[in-house]
Simulated scan of single mutants.
Amino acid sequence: MNYLAHFLLAEQVAQRCDLSTDGLLVGGLLGDFVKGPLRGDFPSPWETGIRLHRRIDALTDSHPLVSHCLEALPANYRRYGGIMLDVCFDHCLSMNWRDFHHQDIVTFTSQSYRSLLDHSENFPTAAKRQIRFLAQYDVLSKMDDWRNIEAMLGRIGQRVKRDNPLGHCGPELAHLLPLINQQFAALYPNLMTQLCEEFSPNAALTHPTKVGLV
C-alpha cells in the first residue's frame, strides 16, 4: 500500500481499536523511513503506528490476491511489481473513495497533512521532506488521475539506481487496471478485519506471537 491507503487504514484502525489516530497516522508515514527494531526512540503511539505500517506491508506482500496481480504482470516487470501495485492500489482507492470513507477525499487528505505537519519537526529529515512535498502539491487527493500515477512511478524509478521499467510501465498497468481494482476491492476489507483483530486491546491475549511480530 502507498500513503493514501496507509493513512486511511491508520485512521480506521485507530477508531475501531481505540488507539491514537495521530499516532497511527504518523506511523503511516514514518514506516517508510524508520528501519530496524523499535526501542522507544519515538513516542509509543508513533511506534504502534510504525508497527501497523509494517504489518500492512507484510500482509499485503504475502496476500494471494496481490500474488494474482503480480502473476498478471509481464515477467520483466515483476521485480518491481510490488512498487507498481502499491501505487496502483492508491489509484483504485481514490477512484472508489466513497466506498471506503464518508468524507470527501480532499477533506480527508487535508486533515491528514495538517496532523502530520503539526508533528513534523520531530520527524527524520527524509520524512519531514516527504510530508511537506505531499502537502504542498496535494498529491494524495489527485491519485484518481492516471497521469499522476505514471508521474509518481517515474519519480520512483529515477530514485532506483539500476535500470527499471517504472518510467514506462503505465500503459501496461492501465490495461490491467480492471483486474487490479477487483483484487484491491477484495483485499482492503480483508486487511481491515485482520488488522483490527491484531491491534485490538485484547490482541496480546488472543495473538501473543503476532503482537511482537513487527
Rank of each mutant, 00 (worst) to 15 (best):
A126G: 03
R55I: 10
A151V: 03
L93E: 02
F7M: 08
A135K: 08
A204D: 01
D22M: 05
N76R: 15
Q111I: 09
H175F: 15
L85P: 00
T109Y: 12
L117N: 08
V87L: 00
Q103V: 03
K142L: 06
M143Y: 09
R39Y: 02
R51G: 06
G49S: 09
R159K: 10
R162S: 08
R162T: 09
I156H: 02
N2H: 13
L117C: 07
A204F: 02
D32K: 08
D32P: 01
N181E: 15
C69G: 14
G28H: 05
A127P: 02
R55L: 13
C88F: 00
H91T: 05
H119P: 00
Y77R: 01
M152V: 09
W46H: 11
V34F: 06
I105M: 11
L140S: 12
F7P: 05
V139A: 09
A72R: 15
H53I: 09
E197W: 13
L213N: 06
N76F: 10
R78V: 06
C92Y: 03
L8H: 08
I105H: 02
S141H: 07
L19R: 15
D145M: 12
E197A: 14
D32V: 04
Y137A: 12
F42T: 04
T209I: 02
I83Y: 02
L85G: 00
H91F: 08
F7H: 13
P43R: 05
R155V: 01
D61H: 13
H68S: 13
